[in-house]
Amino acid sequence: MDTTTIDARAWIERFIAEVERRGAELTELDRRAGDGDYGTNLTSAVRRATAGLEASGADTPEAVFTAVSNAFLNTGGTSGPLFGMWFREFAKALGAKITAKALSEAATNAAAVVQRLGKAEVGHKTMVDAMVPAARALAEAAERDADATTALRAAAAAAQEGAASTEDLLARRGRASYVGEHARGVVDPGALTVAWFFDAATT
């Protein structure tokens, strides 16, 4: 029985605030294990999202995530469009009300889309390393009939753990794959972004 409500707009606004506050950390991670433009691209994407949300006055989960998806799809690089396609599945599945079941469907489809387009598996040191465990946690929560808040807390913990696991990995996909051993010891900034996103749902 779902007794809690999650406000999609407030969730996204907290996520955007976190990216604005800690964007420099992402840039530093990407500078050590990529080409250094990740933080800048992500910051410009969330600013575009803010403008889109303000222009559209979006308040339903579908409208909010559509605005966020479009902003990311209009971002350079490869992470931006992949996040755009990821958020798009949330827009499709969440409809008017955020439930654990809808979140499970959204995150499962979203992770699958990113894996298909980015050709990345878990363990390749990419955003997928946080997306897949978060989706699994949401699916388990939905099966237990957990409420949306409980489900999202589980997803945030799983995403955090997934992001942390990238620290010791050798990159197999994405920009970090070009720098080989230099990327070992560096958390993947894409996976960290996913963890921030789920954290922002319930904090």
């Binding site: 799809l73 209009n74 350079g76 690089g77 931006g80 755009g84």
Partner: peptide, 14 residues
């Protein structure tokens, strides 16, 4: 057209 030496965005292409 994208930025210099960078792909155009999916949104632009669409």
């Amino acid at each position: 057209p994208g930025a210099v030496f960078a792909s155009p965005t999916a949104y632009q292409i669409k």
